[in-house]
């Protein structure tokens, strides 16, 4: 199979970019959900949690209709490009990172919010402290978002087109090789994908959690 490394590279570029963008948007939304006081907040929390089950194929189809030349944003020329794939995966990852991020921030805010406010620290100024307290749980949210993006095939197949050497990723290559009856090759690609996923998670945890810190949250808390 020619061009294996570019396929791995594109998978990582697309999924990590989408995860990064989705983390910014998701954490902003999570902060609003955890600390905000406004009408409809409960409904928004329900909505964000409901969107955890967003079907990738449906997201792909919706974006396809929007990005198609016959659609409203056809002039951008994004369809069948890596950019469209990043957009699709961002849409899929935002609810995951927002919902899990909300969980991660709401709990310390309940516990320490009153103390922070009594010391005269405003809501906005409390955020850095809350993020620092919850960083492992927030990292889990990011990794869950990354897991969604690196593993999904439905959305990027529709908006990316699985074009060889341009928009073909690990997952679309696995789908393609399966359809060609090359089951062994498809399975080994799946193995590589799992390996990459493990490597990314390990690196992220190693960078965020101090050595020996993992698995000791209970004692530390």
């Amino acid at each position: 199979m020619a061009g294996f490394l570019p396929i791995v590279g594109l998978s990582l570029v697309v999924s990590l970019s989408a995860t990064a963008i989705a983390s910014l948007l998701g954490f902003a939304l999570a902060s609003v959900l955890a600390l905000g006081r406004f009408r409809g907040r409960a409904a928004l929390i329900v909505l964000v949690n409901a969107l955890l089950g967003l079907p990738p194929v449906a997201v792909g189809l919706l974006l396809y209709l929007i990005l198609s030349h016959a659609g409203p944003l056809g002039g951008l020329g994004l369809l069948f490009t890596p950019g469209a794939m990043i957009l699709a995966q961002t849409v899929l990852a935002v609810p995951i990172i927002a919902a899990l991020g909300h969980r991660a921030l709401a709990e310390p805010w309940l516990r320490y919010g009153r103390a922070l406010r009594s010391c005269g620290v405003g809501r906005m100024r409390s955020l850095p402290a809350l993020f620092a307290m919850s960083r492992v749980a927030l990292l889990t949210a990011v990794l869950a978002g990354f897991g969604r993006t690196i593993s999904e095939v439905g959305a990027i197949l529709v908006v990316g087109g699985n074009i060889a050497g341009y928009t073909r990723t690990m997952t679309t290559a696995i789908a393609l090789e399966t359809s060609k009856g090359n089951l062994g090759l498809a399975l080994s690609l799946g193995g590589v994908l799992i390996g990459i996923s493990v490597a990314v998670s390990t690196a992220a945890l190693a960078l965020t959690v101090p050595p020996g810190g993992l698995g000791r949250e209970n004692q530390a808390g």
Partner: peptide, 30 residues
Amino acid sequence: GGMGQALNAAEAMGAYTLSDRGTWLAFGNK
């Protein structure tokens, strides 16, 4: 599904299916 999916399904079900010769000859799970 696509031709390859149909051939994979036919193989698994012991079924007949119509295939273009090109895909059939290149197919790896006969």
